[in-house]
Amino acid sequence: MMIDRQLIPLTLLHASNEQEIEGRTRLQKMVFLIQQEFEERGEDLPGTYQYEPYDYGPFAKTLYDDIEYLEERDIIDESKETIAEEDGKVKYNYELGPRGEEILQEWPEEQVEIVLEVAERIKSDFNDIPLLTLLDHVYSEYPKYAENSVL
């Protein structure tokens, strides 16, 4: 059973010709930015994540829970990439899985289109920039979410 808020990460992964998203932090921040844009416009999303200030700015644990749920059902693919052998640091990359398109089609087309319009812009602006640049943007635009940052 799909939850309305899951439309946001699925649409984000579908945007920009299904270009992969590198890193959990990047995925988390881009979903946050989509929600913020809707909130600033005064428009409703079908469902949202509750963010709180955390180590790297806005964080929603339920987004990680949803990603795990979607990954277990082949709706999204999560791959791991070791980036620092000595300390075991891993980066997680995300893309739509084999069932992703099929699941997106279960939502009303107008809902998908509204979210996709914003997701396309957010992804094109922030998917290929350095992560620290993305974090700087989020911290400067939404300072209350930076108060617990370790950076």
Rank of each mutant, 00 (worst) to 15 (best):
K91D: 00
F32G: 05
A15T: 08
V138Y: 01
S124W: 05
Y64N: 09
P143I: 08
E43L: 13
Y54L: 00
L96W: 00
L132M: 03
E86D: 12
A60R: 03
Y92F: 12
N148V: 00
D4M: 05
P46S: 10
T82C: 01
P46K: 02
L27R: 04
Y142D: 00
E109C: 07
Q28G: 08
S124N: 15
L27Y: 07
A15F: 04
D74V: 09
L45C: 09
P9L: 00
E78G: 11
L151A: 08
E68T: 15
L7P: 03
H137N: 06
E102W: 13
M30L: 07
D4H: 07
E72K: 15
Q36R: 15
Q19Y: 10
E147I: 15
R41K: 14
V118N: 08
E109T: 14
E106G: 15
S149N: 06
P98I: 12
T11Y: 04
N148I: 00
Y51F: 12
L7N: 02
F32D: 10
G97W: 06
F59W: 07
D87E: 09
I3S: 01
I34L: 08
Y64V: 12
R26N: 11
M1Q: 09
T133A: 11
A146W: 04
G97Y: 02
G42W: 06
E37D: 15
Y69H: 13
I34C: 13
L131G: 02
L12G: 08
Y49E: 02
R41Y: 04
L33R: 08
V115H: 08
E71Q: 13
E147D: 09
L104N: 10
D4P: 14
S140P: 01
T133C: 00
L12N: 06
A84L: 08
A84N: 14
Y92L: 11
W107L: 12
Y54A: 04
S16W: 06
T133Q: 09
M1N: 11
P130C: 04
Y139T: 01
Y49Q: 07
E68D: 14
V150C: 10
M30Q: 11
Y92I: 01
T48K: 14
I21P: 05
Y142F: 12
I67P: 09
G47M: 07
P9T: 02
E20H: 11
G23A: 10
T62E: 09
Y139M: 00
L13S: 09
V90R: 03
I129C: 02
E52D: 00
V115Q: 12
L134M: 03
Q111N: 14
D65A: 12
Y51A: 01
G47C: 04
V150R: 14
T133S: 12
G97C: 10
D55I: 00
E22D: 13
L116Y: 08
K89Q: 08
A60T: 03
L10D: 05
E85Q: 05
S149W: 03
Y94E: 02
L151Y: 15
E102V: 10
G23N: 08
D125Q: 15
F126C: 11
R5N: 02
Y56L: 07
E40L: 09
G88C: 06
E71T: 10
Y94C: 07
